[in-house]
Simulated assay, not measured.
Amino acid sequence: MTRSLPPAFDQAFLMAAGELGMCSAARLFVRELADEGGDALVAAARDRLGRAFPVFDFVAARFLDGDRAPSIDPSPVLEALAGIARLLIVGLEADFLDTLVPRLETTKIGLITEPVGIELNLRRVVANFGGRVEPVNLSDFQAWAGRRSALLTFVYGTDGHVVHVTPTWLRIAGPDARTQFRSIVGWDILGRPLFVYPRWLVEGSRDDLSRVIGSARVEEPRARPSAAPSEAAK
């Protein structure tokens, strides 16, 4: 018998996204849903949450299409950041930061603590890194600039010259940032465009980034089980 989703499931996911980031929370929820009720429960959650939370929709779709345990490889990001002394991060994704931060042993790391689209407790996140990551106000980001400084933001899929990013990134990106930082790196943690409208995110210019890591070709998702053909095609 297939288990049903709890009434407050939507709110629980939103709270988790505030602590972990949208993709990291989606990875956690999909794993737990699969353990509890298999593919059927993952599909039910995607059908219920997918339009409201497009990153969850993407992660659930990839899981249902066979990508059961996607690994995180920070090596290309580390290569792009080689030789820097300071790294300022815009956005929150706990799973990805957990793989990256310990490998930047001699790098000073800061995290912008302004909201990034959903209500995030970024200062609490900073505390979880035991002093390795400093909180940085948006108004102070230029203090991190320099010839051995880099900016890193999370990207949620690309489409030509467009990248989907958090709203905070648009308050930093632009010609001034490109002249003040050695590298401006976008880590495309999905690797493909989102399947539904990118709520919570905004469109940015790929040209504002010196390098985008992780982007790949477009693949069609599996249709939602309960969606009508006309709805699934939207």
Results as ranks from 00 to 15, higher is better:
T2D: 03
L5W: 02
P7Q: 04
A8S: 15
F9C: 11
D10P: 00
Q11S: 07
F13P: 01
A16M: 03
A17D: 11
L20A: 02
G21N: 02
A25R: 01
R31F: 03
L33I: 01
L33Y: 00
A34G: 07
G37R: 03
G38P: 04
L41T: 01
V42R: 05
A44Q: 08
A45L: 09
L49A: 04
G50V: 04
A52T: 03
A52Q: 01
D57Y: 11
D57C: 05
F58H: 01
F58R: 00
L64C: 01
R68F: 08
S71H: 04
P74K: 06
P76C: 07
V77I: 14
E79H: 11
E79A: 08
A82V: 11
A85M: 06
R86Y: 02
V90P: 02
V90H: 06
E93Y: 03
E93R: 01
D95H: 05
F96L: 05
V101D: 00
E105F: 09
E105V: 14
T106S: 15
L111G: 08
E114R: 14
L120V: 06
L120W: 01
L122I: 11
R124H: 14
A127D: 13
N128D: 11
V133L: 03
E134V: 05
V136P: 00
N137E: 15
N137W: 04
N137I: 13
L138K: 07
D140A: 15
Q142P: 09
A143H: 13
A145M: 10
S149D: 05
V155Q: 04
H164N: 14
T166A: 10
L170I: 01
R171N: 09
I172S: 12
A177G: 07
R178K: 15
R178G: 06
R178T: 03
T179N: 09
Q180S: 09
Q180K: 12
R182N: 08
I184S: 00
I184R: 03
L190V: 00
R192M: 14
F195S: 08
V196T: 14
Y197N: 13
P198F: 08
R199E: 11
L201C: 05
R206W: 07
D207R: 09
D208C: 08
I213L: 11
G214W: 01
G214F: 03
V218M: 10
E219S: 11
E220F: 13
A223Y: 13
R224E: 13
P225A: 15
A227R: 04
E231M: 06
E231N: 07
A232S: 15
K234E: 11
